[in-house]
Design a binder for these strands. Structure first.
Length: 283
DNA sequence: ATAACATCCTGAGAGC
DNA sequence: TGCTCTCAGGATGTTA
């Protein structure tokens, strides 16, 4: 479900309730998500203070006072919801436990963080903070699209030699990390590039032009609190609203929004996943 | 090395 | 009401 903007939205929602706060109790309701939880996860989290909540690509990283870092991935359907009263200003009842509430943190400021994930494609792990980037899930990730290492020369250098469709290249987390199906479709529309176009057949200038476009799409989506299709919620339970700004994603058969274009949005399947684009505007 | 495909899992919605 | 079928924001692992 969540791509970079949704994960960043969740991180921002969790931060006020978790940063600098001790995990008073960790409740783990099943042995695994996508993979088994680490050994003694609940015990290793209990009593730890969350020093900082970071994000790397689509992962949330909670640096703990114990020298370990909790890695959280939301998979396709994961949510993290804050309930209770972190600031001590109101009395909030915690909601009744729901199906698929797999992990619950009770913070010592009164906040409760509930991780709910029906499909269980999500993950949690504990790693040494000092060597966190060497974790198998993080080690091979490409640069952050909103960081300085993601620039024109990087993207051209990574994309230009490849024969794969440009959509596949942008989805490859080793080339740039954090994009998913929605934002790749939206970025290619803005860049006027056909998603099935072979990467090595695109001029360097057009590849380079994707850099500011990708940044812009992601920043606008973060600004809107992410995109809510079926299950995405911000940490306070609110919907994101960037889905109202989609130009192509989920708009099969709807008119293209480019001024003067009378064509309609098409859907194709690329390596098993839906791609939306305008056949007139994107070449 | 590359790319297509199946796979993990549940739920929502469409069609009958 | 209920059955079957398709599809879904991710990412790994297997196959050709």
């Amino acid at each position: 479900m969540p791509e970079l903007p949704e994960v960043e939205t969740v991180r921002r929602g969790l931060a006020p309730a978790m940063e600098g706060v001790v995990i008073a109790r960790a409740q783990v309701n099943r042995p695994d998500l996508r993979w088994p939880f680490p050994e003694n996860m609940a015990q290793r989290l209990t009593g730890a203070r969350v020093e900082r909540l970071r994000r790397r690509s689509k992962y949330i990283l909670a640096d703990l006072s114990t020298g370990e870092t909790l890695l959280i991935h939301l998979g396709m359907s994961g949510r993290m919801l804050v309930s209770g009263d972190p600031l001590g200003q109101f009395v909030h009842e915690h909601p009744a436990p729901e199906k698929h509430d797999h992990v619950v943190f009770d913070m010592d400021n009164g906040a409760r963080i509930t991780f709910n994930d029906p499909r269980r494609f999500g993950a949690m792990d504990l790693l040494d903070t000092a060597t966190a980037e060497q974790h198998p899930l993080l080690a091979k990730l490409g640069p952050e699209p909103l960081g300085n290492a993601f620039n024109e020369s990087h993207l051209v250098g990574q994309v230009k030699p490849r024969a794969m469709p440009i959509k596949s290249a942008l989805l490859d987390q080793k080339i740039v990390s954090g994009l998913g199906n929605i934002y790749v479709c939206e970025a290619l529309y803005r860049g006027r590039i056909h998603p099935a176009r072979r990467s090595n057949k695109i001029s360097e200038a057009r590849i380079a032009a994707l850099v500011p476009i990708i940044r812009e799409v992601l920043e606008q989506a973060i600004e809107a609190g992410g995109s809510s299709l079926k299950d995405f919620r911000q940490a306070d339970g609110e919907l994101g609203y960037f889905q109202h700004s989609f130009d192509v994603y989920g708009r099969e058969g709807a008119p293209c929004r480019t001024p003067g274009c009378t064509d309609e949005i098409k859907r194709i399947v690329q390596s098993g996943r839906s791609t939306f684009y305008c056949p007139n505007c994107q070449r």
